[in-house]
Design a protein around this nucleic acid. Structure first.
Length: 477
RNA sequence: CGAGGAGUAGCGCAGUUUGGUAGCGCGCUUGGUUCGGGACCAAGAGGUCGUGGGUUCAAAUCCCGUCUCCUCGACCA
């Protein structure tokens, strides 16, 4: 156990020093490294593989919903940004601008996209002419740049990867419906693929996207009780359609503006799943996105037949569609155990001469840290498949339990403060005015995350007037 | 952008107070013994001390400038 303590000391304590724990884990497990330019990160193969798995799962859902992929340019004319008043005001402070190219000053500065509503609005304006062109639903996987003051890998970096979906509909009802549908799609994805419970709902005027009519968010509770916005969908009404001339001739012959909406999730999801499932030993990756689902650790690997047996098992698992590797490096078994646990691999199989002789294998679960030695080697595919499924269930249910235990109600600012201090999401009544929302921020350093589905409070937690909404307040990343 | 902290081998650090041959641990390379919870022995490689200027016979060390990173706040996916 002394050696175990030595290992644990490599990463900060998850309970007392959560931010440092996070940074330690993402760097030491080789998910990311810092880039040479302020606020940039390199997503290393182990981290990028998680992103690829996220992409694959989401992309197939988008396509099943009828969305097509496309790619729009990185550079946007500065003049586009200023066409939608709220939009430019919201994003101006954080855009990076290209002023020189080809050795000369540019006639018009070019903005590096912080999001693509403007350029996509411009293109949609060219492509939409008739009601027959609608709905138009496209998505792109790309990078965007927002010059943030401070940064943290996956959670906040100047450049990050995401998908942004943009759609135009003939009516506001359809666009609003799509906005809610995509929110549901994200929620289902978070639950089944990331094994992560989330709160979804509409955002306040203060928290909504610059230029939107309504913004909806998906919020996940992190290990320390803080909230992380993990996805958003926006209903734009006709704001962007009018700014960019997205018009069509309707069935009745009248020229009308379309209604647009957009939605996005980013590499921040990787940060979210790390902070949701991780423990003192490091990462705990949900099986659907884990780059390695099973690591096979040979014991006494130089002994006759051990490596052959491990590789044969790996091939069998791969044929069954399971992402398996054999760690045949020269490190000791104990070293490998700790290393792969830190890297969050859901399952480990230990295979040594004794096991091969008895036809059994030792199976270790990362989520429960429990070893089972009763499984037959011959049934490995079934055992692994079923256990991976059980790990998914366990990860979700224990995260959901923790979240539910940490949602409290407050009837006063003092109660609200006590709630967020204790690492909770706090449900409270709100009159709907900006002043009261600001007061909560000032008093408790907490922000309105999303509206609850229904209002269960009589009075506003701040001013005591009639409550128009029930809001989830939390401290947020 | 405000407040703190830090830049010395791939990583983590000591050395700076009091200027005088560049150090330690881990990792890496080669060979050998090991292997069921971070093994051991032996031999080796690896440095413009973030960067620019100044003081000095002499600077990692003192002085001035500058850049970057981390943590905490205000802004945000």
């Amino acid at each position: 156990m002394a050696k175990d303590n030595q290992f644990v000391s490599q990463i900060a304590d998850i309970e007392t020093d959560f931010p440092q724990w996070y940074t330690d884990v993402v760097v030491k497990t080789k998910l990311v490294d810092y880039g040479p330019v302020k606020g940039t990160m390199v997503i290393r193969p182990y981290g990028y593989a998680i992103w690829e798995n996220i992409q694959r799962e989401l992309d197939s859902r988008f396509k099943a919903a009828g969305v097509e992929n496309a790619y729009f340019p990185l550079l946007i004319p500065m003049s586009f940004m200023t066409k939608e008043a709220e939009h430019v005001e919201g994003f101006a402070p954080e855009v990076a601008v290209v002023t020189h190219a080809g050795g000369a000053k540019l006639e018009e500065p070019l903005v590096i996209r912080p999001t693509s509503e403007t350029i996509i609005g411009h293109m949609f304006g060219k492509w939409v002419e008739s009601w027959r062109d609608l709905p138009l639903r496209q998505n792109q996987w790309c990078n965007v740049m927002r010059w943030e003051k401070t940064t943290r890998p996956f959670l906040r970096t100047s450049e990050f990867l995401w998908q942004e979906g943009h759609s135009v509909f003939a009516s506001g009802e359809e666009a609003e419906k799509e906005t809610l549908n995509m929110l549901s799609l994200y929620e289902e994805f978070a639950k089944t693929v990331l094994c992560m419970p989330v709160l979804t709902g509409q955002k306040t005027e203060k928290e909504k996207f610059a230029g939107a009519v309504a913004t909806y968010g998906m919020e996940a509770m992190m290990h320390d009780g803080k909230s992380l916005q993990s996805g958003t969908t926006h209903y734009m009404g006709q704001n962007f359609a009018k700014a960019f001339g997205v018009q069509f001739t309707d069935k009745d012959g009248a020229l009308k503006y379309g209604y647009t909406m957009s939605y996005g999730v980013s590499t921040r999801l990787i940060g979210a799943l790390i902070m949701t499932h991780g423990d003192q030993r490091g990462l705990v990756l949900p099986p659907p996105v884990a780059p390695v689902q099973v690591v096979i650790v040979p014991i006494a690997q130089k002994k006759e037949g051990v490596l052959q047996a491990c590789n044969a098992l790996k091939e069998r698992l791969r044929k069954a569609g399971i992402r398996a590797v054999v760690d045949d490096s020269d490190n000791s078994p104990g070293w490998k155990f700790n290393e792969w646990e830190m890297k969050g691999v859901p399952l480990r199989i230990e295979l040594g001469p004794r096991d091969i002789e008895s036809g059994k294998m030792i199976v270790f679960r990362r989520d429960t840290l429990e070893k089972e030695d009763c499984h037959l080697l011959a049934e490995a595919e079934t055992v692994v498949g079923e256990t991976l499924g059980r790990i998914c269930e366990n990860l979700y249910t224990r995260a959901e339990k923790r979240m539910n235990e940490r949602i409290v109600r407050a009837n006063s600012l003092e109660e609200l403060l006590r709630g967020v201090d204790g690492g909770n999401f706090v449900r409270a009544g709100w009159c709907g005015c900006r002043a009261c929302e600001d007061k909560v921020k000032e008093f408790a350093q907490a922000t309105a995350r999303v509206f609850d589905r229904e209002n269960t409070f009589e009075t506003c937690v701040v001013c005591g007037k009639k409550a128009e909404h029930t809001v989830f307040f939390a401290r947020a990343y």
